[in-house]
């Protein structure tokens, strides 16, 4: 009788042992820490930066105080925003072309071993040659600055997409490959229903790397194109402002480039999570 009376109460109360409670505490701490800790570090760094400027009487054309950089961000917002849009446009276009070119080449590589043997070494050579060494030549041979910049950014960005997608296309489960063969799948069906879905996590990993590299490529291209007297993106703004000793604006442009890189990475990570969240190990949450 006593057991029957106490049973509902016992069932209603969740059983949490010490280990479970510690785990829950750690989870809460980690959720909070993920945002709070970088924020604290940022505030401390800005504070130190400001104090270093004040304590050492550093002039603003050498190292501006954070407040002045923030003020420049606001005062020069129209110039900076316009420059940001131009750099962003080059970056996104280059990323788009890198995706099309990288995935397209990867598909061709996996469809034809001969094609892969012929061209893969050149893709590697293109990747390992520093873009700053090639960029001046590109702007000599290509008249359109936009196409030149796109080409620079593409050269830097396409390889991770190509390399990862090729790996992914070749990583389809061998039993599934056999199954497709047994059921008489055509080459196109194997590619569409097996190889491309298998390659998706690899491609998305490459895409996240390519996003950052496309920005680097775009910035390098703007530097090189800018020295030729053309260009008005953020990199050119940095170049021009440094000539004029407008260091606050250099910092403002730098902050915008870094912020753009973070936003691109975040958006691509979110995109990746949305596509993989239902089935891929990398996007699944585990208990314990």
């Amino acid at each position: 009788m006593a057991i029957a009376e106490t049973a509902p109460t016992a069932a209603a109360a969740p059983i949490i042992d010490a280990e479970e409670a510690r785990r829950a505490r750690n989870r809460r701490r980690e959720r909070l820490g993920r945002w709070l800790m970088p924020l604290i570090v940022l505030v401390v760094m800005i504070f130190l930066w400001d104090r270093i400027c004040v304590w050492n009487n550093i002039p603003h054309y050498i190292l501006p105080r954070p407040g002045l950089v923030a003020e420049t961000l606001w005062v020069d917002r129209l110039i900076l925003f316009k420059a940001l849009l131009i750099t962003l446009r080059t970056t996104l276009l280059a990323l788009l072309v890198a995706v099309i070119g990288g995935v397209g080449l990867a598909v061709l590589f996996t469809q034809s071993r001969l094609f892969e043997m012929s061209f893969y070494p050149y893709a590697v050579i293109l990747q390992v040659t520093p873009i700053v060494a090639i960029a001046p030549l590109i702007f000599i041979y290509i008249q359109s600055k936009l196409i030149g910049m796109l080409l620079c950014a593409w050269i830097v960005a396409f390889f991770p997409v190509l390399s990862n997608t090729t790996l992914g296309l070749n990583s389809a489960d061998h039993n599934l490959r056999d199954l497709f063969s047994i059921y008489g799948a055509t080459r196109w069906q194997k590619l569409r229903y097996l190889q491309l879905p298998s390659a998706l996590p690899y491609f998305l990993g490459g895409l996240r790397i390519a996003g950052g590299l496309a920005l680097i490529g775009a910035v390098v291209a703007e530097y090189v194109a800018g020295t030729g007297g053309v260009g008005s993106g953020l990199a050119f703004t940095i170049l021009e402002s440094s000539y004029r000793l407008n260091i606050p604006r250099v910092f403002a442009a730098l902050i915008l480039i870094a912020a753009m890189g973070v936003v691109i990475f975040t958006v691509l990570s979110l995109f990746s999570h949305l596509l993989l969240r239902k089935w891929h190990e990398s996007a699944l949450k585990r208990e314990g």
Binding site: N175, L176, D178, L179, I182, P197, W279, H280
Partner: peptide, 13 residues
């Protein structure tokens, strides 16, 4: 033919 392998061999996606 129907085939069953040692592993379930399902498409995870």
């Amino acid at each position: 033919l129907g085939v069953v392998f040692q592993e379930p061999t399902l498409m995870p996606w």
